[in-house]
Design a protein around this nucleic acid. Structure first.
Lengths: 269, 269
DNA sequence: CTTGACCCTCCACCTGCTGGAGGGTCTATC
DNA sequence: GATAGACCCTCCAGCAGGTGGAGGGTCAAG
């Protein structure tokens, strides 16, 4: 016979926990002194305690543990419980993986934005090669202000498959107040089947680019600069044009529009 | 201005939760009617609510969220919080993976034991090829009764690396009450560095085998049978001999010893 | 002026414990 | 046989992050 303190040392459960399990009927002491109310545990309690500890390790609730203890005395009897718990755990793992990937994405985007801003003493138009990428996007016909909501949807639907910065393709050669034809996109590693999202490969191309620093309302000025540059270099611009969001409204905060960084990319022949 | 019910629909937070967040000071309404006590929310509340929802999605506690909201207004400001949360999540993932692997192992062991028992109408000694396997074990010098504790240690230390059924190597050619020389082992996929555990490759070998059904106390009878078989087939037995535990005391329940299944494997030249 | 949909506060409850107050009990030593 | 110190008891409160309900006030439409 163990006193509660002794039993606590043997099992590794605290005295408080043992009293709690008694109260719940999960692990009643083998005997209770009628006079003093002292609890006494025995070898049988010890075995039961070990089972409880093991099941708790598998993240069963105390209620389930009670049910299992009432019905079963062998692993064989609880295969379905284990099967169910496995699903629960698999679910959790996939959720956590999504979270981890999303956090990683935020971290690397922010770090890149920070280094990009370091050379922000004056962004100049330039011509560079942009590599091919696989994009998952949602084609929209409407106002540009809808883009935010669409990016939200993309983020939620694609989760951990996203591997780069958000970008948007513009299929009109001009600015439009309404009926604009554009496609918010996220780069993905490999094709993902998600309802309402279309995959396509953006070819590698040379582009005239310019990093725009500041709110989207002022993008016009940067577009002017970059179009001028294209014209004076006598290059033809192809559609769709692109905007890559180095820093914009984040997944958490809207942030300060003065700090937004957007790269305009105009593909050339 | 939204009433609480309206705001609840917009944000997706329940009315109860909104009142709770108000009480915690996390999301105070924009205005409160002095007469009726009605809460009214505005656009600013909406933005704050969205931030809270996003942060809660990353499994920050309400306390941390409050702290973040008080200090930060851009993803850039909370990179260290995110970094920390990433570690927390990585920790959780690895724990859950271990759990999932352990549950899988129990499931497949039990299923195998079940099918093994189906042909238990009478196990007969036979000679078969046992494939090579990589083992992680703890060499023991003492009594056989210590094996249980050692298997427990192995299970805890190796976690998800275990890929098969527990087995034990016996380096004495005989039964010993004390100073027995044996090694509880777990098969692993690849070498793992764990303190106190040694890795070694068990070579593929032909063995005389016999499945023993019942408690360990009765193993002697099966050993007799299998030794007889070896002798009548004129084969030499090599050390270490092995026992493979198809079904024994489990990780959760001790189970019924009458149902234990143990395969005796005696390697032959 | 009534009806029904809202809103309010306050208290209790969920899981799986932990902490503390206030008081009794056990055992060894003096 | 007294006393100290370790141990045990019950009961109440509290953690996170809410949910549920009782009992009662408010608002807008018909």
């Amino acid at each position: 016979m163990f006193t509660i303190g002794h039993f606590s040392k043997v099992t590794g459960l605290t005295v408080k926990t043992l009293r709690f399990y008694h109260e719940k009927g999960l692990l009643p002491p083998a005997a209770i002194d009628r006079e003093s109310g002292y609890r006494y545990y025995d070898q049988g309690s010890l075995e039961r305690a070990r089972v409880i500890i093991a099941l708790r390790g598998f993240e069963f609730s105390l209620e389930e543990i009670a049910e299992i203890l009432a019905r079963s005395s062998d692993e064989e009897d609880i295969l379905d419980h284990l099967e169910k718990q496995k699903l629960v755990i698999a679910e959790k793992i996939s959720r956590q993986k999504d979270l981890a990937a999303t956090i990683d994405r935020i971290l690397s985007t922010e770090r890149e934005a920070r280094t990009a801003r370091l050379r922000s003493d004056g962004f100049q138009p330039e011509i560079k090669k942009i590599d091919a990428q696989l994009l998952a996007g949602i084609r929209v016909c409407g106002e540009y202000s809808e883009a935010g909501r669409v990016f939200g949807t993309l983020g939620r639907r694609l989760g951990r498959h996203i591997v780069g910065k958000a970008l948007c393709l513009y299929y009109d050669g001009e600015y439009r107040e309404s009926d604009a034809n554009f496609e918010p996109c996220m780069p993905v590693r490999k094709a993902v089947e998600v309802e309402g999202i279309t995959m396509h490969e953006l070819p590698g191309q040379h582009c005239v680019t310019l990093m725009h620093s500041g709110p989207y309302e002022e993008l016009g000025r940067s577009y002017e600069k970059v179009f001028d540059f294209a014209q004076s270099n006598k290059v033809e611009i192809e559609l769709p044009t692109r905007e890559v969001y180095f820093k914009g409204p984040g997944m958490i905060f809207k942030g300060n529009p003065q700090k937004y960084l957007t790269e305009i990319q105009l593909p050339i022949g």
